[in-house]
C-alpha cells in the first residue's frame, strides 16, 4: 500500500501531507525565533535605559536596507518560479530559481562585510548584550538562509528536478513547500531589521 495524499489532497482537510508538515515545522520555527525575540525584549528591559539603542547605533543601516530589499526580491522570484511551474514553463522556473539563489548569495556576502566591519572595530558578541543578541539572531537567520540555499540548489540541479518529467505536480508541490520556508525566512528578517537596526 502506498502512502496516500502525497499529490492528491485529502477530502476532509483539503491538504497534501507535505504542506501540512511544512506549516507545522514553521510553527515550531515561530516558537524558536519567538524564544529569541522574547530573550531580546527581556534583556532590553533588564539593561540600563538607552544601552540597547546606544549599541544599536553601531550597526550599518544602509547595508541592512539593501539586504532587506535583496531578500524581498528573492521572495518574489521564489514565488514566480512556483507560478512558472504552474504555467508549465520549466525554463522560466530555472531562471527564477537561479535569481533566488543569487539574491541569497548577495545577502550573505553583504552580511559577511557587516560582520567583518564589526570585528575590525573590535566589536564582538562579548562586547555587550545587544551585540550578543545581534550576532546570535542574525547568525541563526544566516544559517536558515544557507539551509534554504542547499535545498534550492538541489531542486535546481538536474538530479533534483528530474521528477518534473515524470510527475510534474509532485515537483511543483516540492517547490511550493521550499517556497513557504523561504518566505518564512524572509518574514523573520522583516522583523529582525527594525528590531535590531532601527529601534
Amino acid at each position: 500500500m502506498e502512502i496516500p495524499y502525497i499529490v492528491d489532497e485529502r477530502e476532509d482537510t483539503g491538504l497534501i501531507n507535505s504542506k501540512l508538515g511544512i506549516w507545522i515545522f514553521l510553527a515550531s520555527e515561530v516558537m524558536l525565533f519567538g524564544g529569541l525575540f522574547s530573550a531580546y525584549v527581556f534583556l532590553r528591559m533588564a539593561a540600563p535605559p538607552g544601552d540597547f539603542a546606544h549599541w544599536g547605533a553601531e550597526l550599518n543601516v544602509p547595508l541592512a536596507t539593501l539586504n532587506t530589499l535583496v531578500l524581498i526580491t528573492s521572495s518574489v522570484t521564489m514565488v514566480m518560479s512556483w507560478a512558472s511551474l504552474k504555467l508549465k514553463d520549466f525554463e522560466k522556473y530555472k531562471i527564477y530559481m537561479a535569481l533566488t539563489l543569487l539574491c541569497a548569495a548577495i545577502f550573505l556576502v553583504v552580511k559577511y562585510f557587516e560582520y567583518t566591519a564589526k570585528f575590525h572595530h573590535d566589536i564582538f558578541p562579548s562586547s555587550s548584550t545587544f551585540m550578543a543578541i545581534y550576532f546570535t539572531l542574525t547568525g541563526l537567520h544566516g544559517l536558515h538562509i544557507i539551509g534554504g540555499m542547499i535545498v534550492i540548489t538541489y531542486l535546481w540541479m538536474p538530479f533534483g528536478n528530474k521528477i518534473w518529467h515524470t510527475n510534474p505536480e509532485h515537483f511543483t508541490n516540492r517547490v511550493e513547500v521550499i517556497g513557504l520556508y523561504w518566505h518564512f525566512v524572509d518574514l523573520v528578517w522583516i522583523f529582525l531589521f527594525p528590531v535590531l537596526y532601527l529601534i
Binding site: A27, G34, I133, T136
Partner: peptide, 25 residues
C-alpha cells in the same frame, strides 16, 4: 513538543554562546 521545545533550543543556543563566545545572556 512542537511548540515548547524550540524555546529550549533557543535557550541552549544562548547558553552555548555564553560558554563559547563569552557573551552574557
Amino acid at each position: 513538543l512542537v511548540l515548547a521545545f524550540p524555546p529550549l533550543e533557543a535557550a541552549a543556543i544562548l547558553q552555548l554562546m555564553d560558554r563559547i563566545a563569552s557573551t552574557s545572556f
